[in-house]
Computed example of a mutant assay.
Amino acid sequence: MRNPIAALVLSVCLLAGLVPSAGARGVYGWVEFVELHLGGEALKLKAKLDTGARSSSLDAVDVQPFERDGKRWVRFRLNLPGAKRSAPLEEPIVRYVRIKRHKGPYDRRPMIRLQICLGDELRSVDVNLTNRGRFIYPLLLGRRALTGLAVVDPARTFQRAPRCAASPNGE
Rank of each mutant, 00 (worst) to 15 (best):
A155P: 00
G119T: 06
D126F: 05
A166L: 10
L49R: 04
A83Y: 03
K100P: 03
E171N: 15
A161H: 01
A16R: 15
A165L: 08
F66P: 12
E67D: 11
T157W: 00
Y106G: 10
P4R: 09
P20D: 13
Y106F: 14
L43I: 13
C164S: 05
P92M: 06
C117A: 07
V152E: 11
L129A: 05
A165W: 14
R95D: 12
C13I: 00
H37K: 08
C164A: 11
L36P: 04
L122T: 10
L15S: 10
L141R: 03
L80F: 05
D50T: 05
N131I: 07
P162K: 07
G26W: 13
N128S: 15
W73V: 02
K103L: 04
G104I: 05
E32G: 12
R156T: 00
R108P: 05
M111F: 13
R2C: 02
N3C: 07
R72F: 02
E32V: 10
V12K: 13
D153Q: 03
S86H: 05
R75Y: 04
P65C: 07
V94D: 12
V61N: 01
G70C: 10
V94P: 08
A83N: 05
Y28A: 02
T51V: 11
P162S: 06
A161W: 07
L45E: 11
D120Q: 14
F135K: 03
G17T: 01
F135M: 15
L118Q: 05
R144N: 10
G70N: 11
R132A: 09
I116K: 07
A87Q: 14
S124Q: 12
A60T: 08
R95A: 09
R109A: 15
P20I: 02
L149C: 08
S56V: 11
L18A: 08
L38G: 10
A42P: 10
D50Y: 05
P92T: 05
A22E: 13
S57N: 01
R123Q: 15
L18K: 06
S167F: 07
V152K: 04
A145I: 10
D69I: 06
R143A: 13
E67Y: 14
P81H: 03
D59F: 02
W73K: 01
L114F: 11
N169T: 14
T157M: 14
R132N: 08
A165H: 14
V74D: 03
M111R: 14
L114R: 09
Y106C: 02
I136K: 15
D62Q: 00
R109Q: 11
V74E: 03
P65V: 03
F135Q: 12
Q115K: 14
H102P: 08
G170R: 12
L114K: 09
P65K: 06
K103C: 00
N79H: 13
L114W: 03
P138W: 05
V61Q: 00
R160S: 12
A22T: 13
R85Y: 00
R101G: 08
S11W: 10
P20A: 09
E32Y: 07
R163V: 11
I93W: 09
L78S: 03
P162M: 04
K46G: 01
